[in-house]
Design a protein around this nucleic acid. Sequence first.
DNA 1: GTACGTGATGTAAACGTTTTCCATACCTTA
DNA 2: TAAGGTATGGAAAACGTTTACATCACGTAC
Lengths: 348, 348
Amino acid sequence: MSGHKPSPLAVDIRRVAAEAGVSIATVSRVLNNPSRVSPQTRERVLEIATRLGYRPNPNGKRLRKGRAETIGLVIPSPPGRFADSFFLELLAGLGEGLSDAGLDLLVATCPPGTEELGCYRRLVEGKRVDGLVVARTRRYDERIAYLLAQNIPFVSHGRSDLISTPYPYLDVDGQQGFYMATQHLLHLGHRNIAFIGAPRELNFATHRLAGYRQAMLEAGIPIRPEWLLEGDLSENSGYQLAQILLAPPEMPTAILCANDLMALGVLRALRERGLKGGREVSVIGYDDIPQAQYTDPPLSTVHQPFRDTGKRLVEMLLARLGGAPVSALQEVWVPELVLRGSDGPPQP
Amino acid sequence: MSGHKPSPLAVDIRRVAAEAGVSIATVSRVLNNPSRVSPQTRERVLEIATRLGYRPNPNGKRLRKGRAETIGLVIPSPPGRFADSFFLELLAGLGEGLSDAGLDLLVATCPPGTEELGCYRRLVEGKRVDGLVVARTRRYDERIAYLLAQNIPFVSHGRSDLISTPYPYLDVDGQQGFYMATQHLLHLGHRNIAFIGAPRELNFATHRLAGYRQAMLEAGIPIRPEWLLEGDLSENSGYQLAQILLAPPEMPTAILCANDLMALGVLRALRERGLKGGREVSVIGYDDIPQAQYTDPPLSTVHQPFRDTGKRLVEMLLARLGGAPVSALQEVWVPELVLRGSDGPPQP
DNA sequence: GTACGTGATGTAAACGTTTTCCATACCTTA
DNA sequence: TAAGGTATGGAAAACGTTTACATCACGTAC
């Protein structure tokens, strides 16, 4: 019992050619290299092709061209998937540009126990993709090292510090972002500013921390080690760490969080203690996730334009596939500090 | 300036055959139909194939077999993308089963302005996928109608009411879920239960509403029209509608929300008015998104096993591709009511 | 001893494109 | 008018598989 039969009359290039009274070569040329064929026949073939609803079979094309006409994105295994909206926005941005270029987007999620690199191997060594987008870069990123070694085109969202060979990336400058955020708090008069960071192996963790450090250093304010914590980017983690920070004897007057989710947790902890974010304690997050507008108080944060990022990443990858040199494909964007209600001058 | 060169020595089936001293047909058989070849040669070929790291070129295979070896998922355009974690969990579940089966997952996101059906057309008429997963079904779902008409295998997450031809689906019974939730509230003594629903065209909206209606009917409690609202599933929408419900003269003692995000909004509205969820007003959501555990109070809700759903959807789709009859591929799961802190007996 | 099934392998065709090479006809130019 | 360039289109090879069919050797049954 066969579940489905293939479409009754597959209309292939032969059919179009026959109908138009030309060779298949001509039909192919009309579609891929229109200038190589006379206007009259071009029109005729085109008309017939659309009338018949002809769509070149992608597999034939791919085989002949030796390309997959597909780019890949590997989504890390979900235990540790803390940024849902990030990936979906990115996906949306990627998809948009790709379908315009006639490319497909292959998404692989590596199963929980699996080595992430294995997913990449499968995709590139199995010739399933022409290029890749690498997200959530780590400080030393073996994925990037691997792709460089294989000499396969890719672009990375975020840099990887400890890799010497240049490669294309698009990064939003987390250092700058948190430099601005910290400076803002300093200008408001804060001196006791705590920092809840991200896991060290993630590259942006280092950058955001560096921004905080730089601002504090410039202001001549020493950083208390007990106010320098590291969370796992989950809401709950922010909540837990806030408990530590808010315990006596001395509380910070402001808390900087490496992402919004943790900031949400901090706000929850404040609320439970009857403290109001933005009054007793200022809180600033990073990412500007959708919920950030609706917290109580609305969360001040550093905005990342994920969607635009995705779109640009596609452009860069396309350029790379087209042979553009790496040096032209390294961008660092400056993020924007979005002040809502969760920051304010310190209580006297 | 070419961005990258293809791998220096592509190892194809010919190479393996030559190395093993057999014909390419034999190599192919070893990989696809091992019983057709003698144990000795099978071993030898296998050994050589792995030593050389041979991977059949997917495009050759796909062309010959006339299949895409890919299944598709269309993610709706993000304005209106209210369930981030839903799609990512689903993706994770799908991906897991698929890579085991050697299939790829093609994800298309239709650009904001675009007709969603167009994405489906592109995928199936362009022969880019062998099958599809349809998510977030609508009451009359043109996508399902289209796929049925095209006779292309698919499974749907959720049913579509107004389509007569049977098709494979996996649904979590929202009616049952909210029937249980409402009954629970009734048992607690609530009589004034409001309902914030989802947009009517979404199929689960109808189901969840029906569960509420059924329980109220059985209890002999008339439903007040002013307590029957419809939101857009966003957190903010829940917040706005709660303002209406909480306005004098008379407030409901419990509010049922068609999804957790809106329930979060309701909790926020309560908080702002100094009311405590679960004491003054009970709130129950639907979905059990990650944040639900961490709200204040923790949100009582109806749990949907998205990940398992994704895994099962793949199994069903595979079965369908293998020719299983539709009648064996229709499942309705019973969800689980998860009681946390946001429900309780009504205030006297 | 001939005929025949059977198991193992090879040959070659096909899948649907793109692209290289040729052939033809035309136009230009000396 | 001959020579050579240019525009146009066709024939055929190639991309890397899978699979229908042919071949061959061998054991078995009569």
